[in-house]
């Protein structure tokens, strides 16, 4: 029953209206970033934001639904990656509960933890579904590692451990900066510390 209470705590009406906005943030900023041709995705700022201010379960749901929406609207290739987005939201949420969203240098630690989790989940999907290669620049690193004799899973995992942190640290920092602007949200203590309001 503790689990159910923990899930329930994350979902009130505020969260319910915040999640669509967060998903839209993911999609819109993700599209802009891909147009700007930056070496990052930044397509989960909204997920991390909801995770930090509403809780890990809300974050996990935001991530999952973001991928479903991305698949519904833009590219069905996004569907199978939903577990990655789920884990990003979930881990970011627990980082926030643990106080990692209260100062910018702690947010970097959160970014690293999130990226490790994301790499661990995305690598098997990449290997089993796409044979390890996707249409992104980082696949060149994978190819290089393969060429130098690593097996596929090791190559993909190492690539992801190498490239994910930049993206996820940037994502967490941007979410952190945005959250500070918001006056009233369900878990202010995650961002502001327990002493202030």
């Amino acid at each position: 029953m503790k689990l159910i209470d923990s899930i329930k705590r994350d979902f009130n009406t505020m969260t319910l209206v915040m999640i669509p906005v967060a998903i839209a943030i993911n999609v819109v900023i993700g599209q802009i970033v891909s147009l700007l041709k930056l070496p990052v995705y930044l397509d989960s700022i909204g997920t991390v934001l909801v995770a930090a201010i509403c809780g890990p379960w809300a974050g996990a749901l935001t991530g999952t639904l973001s991928n479903i929406i991305w698949g519904l609207l833009i590219d069905p290739n996004a569907f199978p990656w939903f577990p990655v987005a789920l884990v990003i939201g979930f881990v970011a949420g627990w980082c926030a509960v643990g106080g990692l969203f209260r100062a910018w240098w702690k947010v970097i630690i959160a970014g690293i933890l999130v990226s490790l989790a994301a790499a661990a989940i995305s690598s098997p999907i990449q290997v089993y579904l796409y044979g390890g290669i996707t249409a992104s620049g980082s696949s060149f690193i994978t190819a290089f590692l393969l060429q130098s004799g690593r097996d596929l899973m090791t190559a993909v995992l190492s690539t992801n451990f190498l490239v994910e942190p930049i993206d996820k640290i940037a994502t967490c920092l941007l979410a952190f900066v945005s959250a500070r602007y918001l006056a009233r949200f369900p878990r202010p203590e995650n961002i502001m510390g327990s002493s202030s309001r």
């Binding site: 505020m14 943030i25 819109v28 802009i32 700022i45 909204g46 918001l182």
Partner: peptide
């Protein structure tokens, strides 16, 4: 650099209305 002044206002202006919509 052009990204930062975009993300802040976009996120902020989208989330201020959340309370009323709830």
């Amino acid at each position: 650099r052009s990204l930062l002044p975009l993300v802040g206002p976009l996120v902020f202006s989208s989330l201020v209305d959340v309370e009323e919509r709830a």
